[in-house]
Write a protein that binds this DNA or RNA. Structure first.
Lengths: 108, 108
DNA sequence: GGCTCATATGGCAAGATCGCTATGTCGACG
DNA sequence: CGTCGACATAGCGATCTTGCCATATGAGCC
């Protein structure tokens, strides 16, 4: 029950977390995640909803895919993207702990 | 009550959130936040703990400062950095909502 | 096979970021 | 006033990112 966070203070952990954070640290990619949080979408749907070209949406989805934040599943001629919940949850949890230490009654 | 997230799907909101995310999407800056989550530190302490030069630590702290994630307070010849909890909390909350939509029993 | 639609990728120029060294600023102290 | 320690910033070359056009891939259909 020592500190909760030192894991993040380790170089390797921090690098991995930063890698994932970098994937969402972009306006368009963040909006993609927001849309996918509601339900699955095809590339075309996403491109139209965000008013961007198909190529760039596909490019940004690729980055989210490589960060394992989303998965692609071809279905009926379209490719539907879906959020990978555990990965996003991990990210949220990591930041939650950052904040939690400060919020502890007796501090950490 | 409609969706919780569309705010993030807006261009302005997403840009602002991405700006903050970008600030922590970096191994060294993430470790700085992790250390500052435990308690305040001077620049020298941070530089030594992270085994990096003073200049680069100062530089990254500046980026965190501009993102309003930390504040600097000169005290006794040292400059102590401190996390800005509301800002970090806002970030956590935003990502939490992203994940929450998926976790809802009846979906979003 | 030849076609079309949906999606992925390559390449490019502009701009941002990285890590670093050198130097500037500021308060404390004699 | 001069100096020292702590910290901030400027400037540099190298590398990565961004947005976009043109084009490649791949499934489905005639």
């Amino acid at each position: 029950m020592p500190v909760v966070l030192p894991r993040l203070a380790g170089r390797a952990e921090a690098t991995a977390a930063a890698e994932t954070l970098k994937a969402v640290a972009h306006p368009l990619r963040l909006r993609l995640v927001a849309l996918l949080a509601e339900r699955d979408h095809s590339v075309r749907e996403l491109a139209e909803a965000l008013e961007h070209g198909q190529a760039i949406v596909s490019q940004q989805l690729r980055i989210l895919r490589m960060a394992r934040l989303v998965t692609a599943e071809p279905r009926g001629g379209f490719v539907y993207y879906r959020l990978v919940e555990p990965q996003l949850k991990k990210l949220v949890g990591c930041m939650e702990r950052c904040h939690a230490l400060r919020s502890l009654p007796s501090g950490g």
